[in-house]
Design a protein around this nucleic acid. Structure first.
Lengths: 332, 332
DNA sequence: ATGAAAGCGCTAACAG
DNA sequence: CTGTTAGCGCTTTCAT
């Protein structure tokens, strides 16, 4: 591998001139710049990342802690990851994947492997928050803990999403509604989005005087079937359902039909899921989009802002937008 | 951040002694070792990754090129990624996520950001192969190109899987069968697993004298419905179906039922998908498991072997295993 | 506008 | 068993 010294020699300049030509941190005459660029091209030179990191105390790498575990919706996760990776690429960063364990956080930060962190799957009272806050490197959470500890956060406003879905059903005249939500294990570890979704749902139901039921549901066809059956047993006159469980969604709809309740004839459905899921079902479903890829990119933007100015911490909640696709029937 | 020199001073030894104590590359007396460990603990010392990489020419980072694009099955992808990340963690490596573009490959290798590479979503005649082969860093492909170019490869033996699924149906007396396969765009770019699956399927059908049809199918409910309808139109007396499309699978089954063909009463199904997908459907499905996570880990094992001895290149095809779950009916 | 040179923190030869 | 020291390749002052 060619070094910066090889380039300098070939271009007939000093190392520092090459370095400055590369970084643009001081003016270089057009003639010199041309010779340097030529030498770089001829040698196929690329700065050694380790050497650069050692000298500059920057790695241009972002750590990404993503839940590679079950229960969470892999499809949504992948979209977040894709957003972070492409956003990072655009900003000149690479992405180091970290596992969920506490140890990897300390390891990559204290060995200076990463300049910053994106943390997903945040719990309401997340154990990692104090550690993150104490770090030299800035971090952005995808999710919203009960107490952000001064950390930057970004997420869809799930409270609003839950409320908005309910209000859509109420406006259509529905008075008995249910939430088919995240799997029990996700709820049990107080994952931020599940809590907020439930709060928004319940709050709007109570405000609107609607009879309601919340059903944590496994991310599987069998789980969806079981939840629908439970729902029909406990709330036989249910007419409106909010589904915040991408895997269950199609099976929820087909189970209602198997049980003789047409969608949207007898039961109206509002989903909270990525747009591509809502549109690729046999029947298009009215939904609130989870703009996962966009949020991933916003997370990176916030991170670069923080690296420029560490005082820029903020909480950003993306407002939900409901798209009509005809799966809600007006009882009016 | 504490440096190795801080540790050395505090322990009353030289830098190199600390370094050797850490690497275990030469014997250290118990007493010294204890003092060093104490100093490390007290200072919370961690070696600077960049400095280490510069001095040792190793980063302990593996690059992972995964398809964050549509068409491929995100669920399966995530399982591969999870396998690579956990396998890497176990072997003492971190994982750098790379996007699919040609450029990122050259960038991370020539700047010495990674020691080795795992490449997913390999196409039959993949454009990246010559570049990979020319690299200083070893690489392992998940998938099997037409010509491996001397590179290491690992994958499920999809040819066998396709053949085995067909033979199961033939053994049960089925004579008219179809393959509901990967999306058109995946097939069109000659993705290795899709090609091999089709070959195995068609080969076994021809060998067994079965009437057959191959239907590339979008990874969506709507796509599944369309494929079933097409199938019933073109091959009305079909009795056996092989499904190699995880997203479509549940919708294929329910569409058959909607069209009056019970599964497995009228139509038998063999799926090729991860085990958790086959078992979490309303009706368990006889399937050939794609051991994605295991293959990801094997890829890392092969990589560490290659780093020890670059001449260890090999192609490993994991033999498919069919698990009965009752979705194939014996026609006697 | 350019050069010389001092580190950045670690590893691994070389020397005992 | 331990210490001394020469780099690894780059960035960035300090000079000019």
């Amino acid at each position: 591998m060619a070094t910066i010294e090889d380039v300098a020699r070939r271009a007939g300049v000093s190392q520092s001139t090459v370095s400055y030509a590369l970084s643009g941190k001081r003016p270089i005459s057009a003639a010199t710049r041309t010779r340097i660029e030529k030498a770089i091209a001829e040698l196929g030179y690329r700065a050694h990342a380790g050497a650069r990191a050692l000298a500059s105390a920057r790695t241009d790498v972002i750590g990404l802690m993503a839940p590679l575990r079950t229960g969470v919706d892999v499809n949504v996760i992948m979209q977040f990851v894709a957003g972070v990776v492409t956003g990072a690429g655009r900003a000149g960063y690479d992405v180091l994947m970290l596992t969920q364990d506490e140890g990897s956080l300390a390891r990559v930060t204290s060995s200076s492997m990463v300049d910053a962190l994106v943390v997903m799957d945040v719990e309401d009272d997340d154990a990692r928050l104090p550690a993150l806050q104490a770090l030299r490197q800035p971090s952005v959470l995808i999710g919203l803990p009960a107490d952000p500890h001064g950390l930057s956060c970004v997420d869809l406003d799930f409270t609003q999403a839950g409320a908005s879905a309910v209000r859509r059903l109420l406006a259509a005249g529905h008075r008995t509604v249910a939430l088919i939500g995240s799997p029990r294990e996700v709820v049990d570890r107080h994952t931020s989005y599940a809590e907020r979704m439930t709060r928004g749902f319940v709050g709007a139901c109570e405000a609107g005087g609607a009879t309601h039921l919340v059903l944590p549901t496994p991310a599987s066809a069998a789980g969806a079937v079981a939840s629908v059956d439970t729902l029909l047993a406990q709330l036989p006159d249910v007419t409106g359902v909010v589904v915040h469980n991408e895997v269950a969604l199609p099976h929820v709809i087909s189970r209602f039909r198997e049980r003789g309740r047409d969608v949207p004839g007898e039961v109206s459905v509002v989903a909270v899921c990525p747009e591509n899921v809502a549109t690729s079902l046999p029947v298009p479903v009215t939904s609130i989009d989870i703009p996962a890829e966009g949020i991933g990119q916003i997370a990176v933007d916030m991170l670069t802002a923080l690296m420029r100015d560490p005082s820029m911490a903020e909480v950003r909640l993306v407002s939900p937008r409901l798209t009509e696709r005809g799966s809600v029937r007006d009882l009016g």
